[in-house]
Amino acid sequence: DGCIQFTRHAGDVLLNFNRLRSRNILTDVAIQVDGQHFHAHKAILVACSGFFYSVFMDPKNANLSAISLDPKVDPKGFSILLDFMYTSCLDLKDSLVLATMNTAIYLQMEHVVDTCHRFIKS
């Protein structure tokens, strides 16, 4: 007995989710960040962010289809982290790494925070 492991599968699935997001297909939540709106799939947000996990695991938020984040959250930082969730690539420009790190702290994405911190120290 054994199995055939398709080594590209995780990446192929995530790429399809990102195609669905860019075409707004099966997206089930709109995130408002300081006036900007982002469509996404709750399942991806919950899988990647401790903050969204705690929001959407709460039964009273089960049917939430729109959520506004704290105004202190930087929309550019959020956009970078949302792209990271759907691509595994974290866009790190010197000018935005601090905003990205602070947003990752807010979204409870500890591993990204650590990576941003190491990048800043280097």
Binding site: D1, G2, C3, I4, Q5, F6, T7, R8, H9, D12, V13, L15, N16, R19, L20, S22, R23
Partner: peptide, 21 residues
Amino acid sequence: YEGVNTIKEMGRSIHEIPRQD
């Protein structure tokens, strides 16, 4: 799946959703 009888398939595993229809 790092079992003893694992064959690794490097090719695409599923269909690709197009950027637009």
